[in-house]
Design a protein around this nucleic acid. Structure first.
Lengths: 200, 200
DNA sequence: CTAATATTATACGTTTTTTATATAATTATA
DNA sequence: TATAATTATATAAAAAACGTATAATATTAG
């Protein structure tokens, strides 16, 4: 996620974000000093500090915009006139892609250094979860998800997943992080499909 | 390259080298502080400094041992009773593998910080080149490489390649660094095969 | 061309990180 | 139990990174 072409930023600012995105994904946020972003982007340090108060604000900016864009896409998918399961597939794919970007390393290693960014990240996560819950509730009303599933339970499951994400042994048992993400999503979404009661 | 099992190091030292190898390859040498190697390896800092004077010495150690092992393998290949072209294929494969390890990032980003390591790396490179030249000369004597090729020219070509390696635009035009390495090797070795004069 | 704006290079003081060592306590081993 | 290996902790010094100030240079618009 995060399509910079949609943001209409000044050239230099776009360059900075673009470069930082690359570097952060490759090495993790905390390993990349501001000066390296600037050097790699071919932009002076002063220009960086013109557009962003500091590295945290840059990260916040990227996450916020990326989050907005993924919400937009989420809404688009919901509005499509296709079966529930197809929507789920699209959403899973989207989730997978955005998680590949705001990936393991990218996010996690920075939290230990910056508590407020961690808070911010979790705020975005919460909002994201809430959207998913609405989606499920709506699907329940339409009979696309079994009605005896308590949304609160689903919420608890999602909270547990936040803990699971910190379980390195678990994560490492997957060949890559996306596989893990897919597993989680498969569990959440395909695990709550209406149980087959009779042939149709 | 660099098979730690062959080195018979004390457990903790092996752990340190093994861990450092991983981290350096993933993030580059300069991005990994000694303390992170220790934490990741689950070894105290004092133990690190017991086995290595500093990070440079660790890097030097790894390069030296890796270089020794690759020379051994090089000699083994030369001693095999197989056609010249088969040997070349094996050597190319070996080169490719060892370059994948002492890779782009792994080596290059550190040179700017540590000139003596750069010197050391280049010393190893020179020795390596010299070995290759002997190999070619020997092949010339056997009529496996065209005799009108001047080894000095080959040396010059190899020196130019050292400059080429610093040409980021060129490197980036390959999808990955190994592809570039293969290209270079293909040029050097397959470009000097005896020209077909008549059918045999 | 001129004035306003954006960008850069440089220098700088401050904070943070990293380094490398010293010391004492703990653990493992013969 | 004595010896060696390892750790935890503290610390001074060096290096890296931060963020700002300033002056010079490009760029752009009127």
């Amino acid at each position: 996620m995060l399509d910079l072409s949609k943001l209409n930023l000044p050239e230099k600012q776009r360059l900075i974000v673009d470069t930082a995105l690359d570097l952060f994904q490759q090495f993790g946020i905390k390993r990349i000093p501001v000066e390296e972003i600037c050097k790699t982007a071919g932009v002076s340090k002063m220009t960086f500090y013109k557009y962003f108060k500091n590295k945290n604000e840059l990260v916040r900016f990227m996450w916020e915009k990326g989050f907005e864009q993924s919400l937009e896409k989420f809404d688009e998918i919901q509005a499509l006139d296709i079966p529930f399961e197809k929507k789920l597939q699209l959403i899973l794919k989207m989730k997978e892609e955005s998680t590949a970007k705001i990936s393991h390393q990218f996010a996690l290693d920075y939290f230990y250094a910056s508590p407020d960014l961690k808070d911010f990240f979790e705020k975005l996560s919460r909002e994201s979860i809430s959207r998913f819950l609405s989606f499920i509730k709506n699907a329940q009303e339409k009979g696309e998800v079994r009605s005896d599933l308590r949304p609160e339970f689903l919420l608890a499951v999602i909270n547990i997943i936040k803990i699971m994400v910190k379980d390195e042994a678990l994560i490492n048992s997957y060949s890559n992080y996306q596989d893990f993400v897919m597993e989680v999503n498969n569990f959440i979404f395909y695990g709550v499909l209406p149980r087959p009661t009779s042939e149709e």
